[in-house]
Design a protein around this nucleic acid. Structure first.
Lengths: 118, 118, 118, 118
DNA sequence: GTGGTCTAGACCACT
DNA sequence: GTGGTCTAGACCACG
């Protein structure tokens, strides 16, 4: 999957979001080891320091756990993962609703539309 | 509203999408005159030729009408506008669903989630 | 009617053809006086000398008659007109056939096609 | 074959028509590769961008197919080719009829004339 | 090498 | 002033 980095926002933030999505989508399963900083950085064609910063931020919210010597692993805290998923879902929904509203769809319209599509 | 052009996709396409959204959101009402090519181009910090190409593409699908000497106007064909709106809504929904699926939400989950939020 | 002069062939020839068509199409009736050289030249945005040359050529094949003092008149020789018409018709047909042949139509195809269209 | 571009109509349109005729006349067989944009442009003594525009227009109606890195090929859709041929034939016929009518030939006259010539 | 995109700058017709 | 066209020259991604 391409990284698609744009220059109009801090790179490390985009890296964070990208990796967070990968984790929550199950691409990196809970408890698993994450690839090394160097590997990820080269993958994203980004300076290792930038990648490092992104991973540190992800540690701060608990999604990643640093094991000093053996790299980083994904948290096994299912509740935390669920919460983070919920957060992302909320963001997605908000963007979606905003776009639909701009197109003239009321909230009821949106609901009806989705029921129709499914 | 900023234009937020990224360099990873053809600029004229991004211009098209941006203007299409503006039209469908009612920012430029049907039958109204669009700002001149040069004005829009300067607004988007883009070469007039690039903006011209974007507008000509929008003309091709009927959303805009060029009046040689007196500028371009937005179509008054309500049906066409409705259809274009539907198309954009469908795209938004697809992206939304794809993201939700990646987060582990089934279609039923999505429906339940939205009902909950509204 | 516009004159549509292109620069890839002698101007006077194009003027000749244009005026000949006008005469044979009855736009200038037989026996009638032709507009003055100056007038025609200004109409075609062309140097009067060039127009003059065109008219002289048309005199040589008999379509026009110069009356020294009172300008030029169109010939009343119906046979000559008929013959010229025939000549032009032949040219038109030849061009048409050539184009159709290039498109893969045989002479029989052409005949069938025209019958069909009429 | 010379390109014979006149300045009284957009060049790219004349290029389109010229190339379309070449294709429909079988000068570039179906499925075959077209010369490169640059080659055609230099051939027609025209800017590559202008030639590009002409080719893109022909692509839009399906006559050409662009293969990003390996040049353009002529469509193999025989039906499309046949339809385009029909369209051109119709145009040729209309022009021919109009000219003949101007010369005083009725539609019956035209038919009789052609039968005579074949 | 290929097609595709973009910019800069120019000229045109129309009104 | 408007849209439209054209040129010249540059850069990109893809193989």
């Amino acid at each position: 999957m391409p990284w698609n980095l744009s220059s109009d926002r801090p790179i490390y933030m985009q890296l964070m979001e990208h990796i967070e999505k990968d984790i929550l989508a199950g691409h990196y399963p809970p408890g698993e080891r994450l690839p090394s900083v160097r590997e990820l950085a080269s993958d994203a064609s980004v300076n290792p320091n930038t990648m490092q910063k992104a991973l540190q931020e992800l540690e701060r919210n608990g999604l990643l756990i640093s094991n000093r010597t053996s790299g980083r692993t994904i948290t096994e805290d299912q509740e935390l993962l669920a919460q983070a998923r919920k957060e992302l879902a909320k963001q997605s929904l908000n963007i979606f609703i905003k776009e639909m509203n701009a197109l003239g769809y009321s909230n009821e319209d949106i609901l009806a539309y989705i029921k129709d599509e499914f």
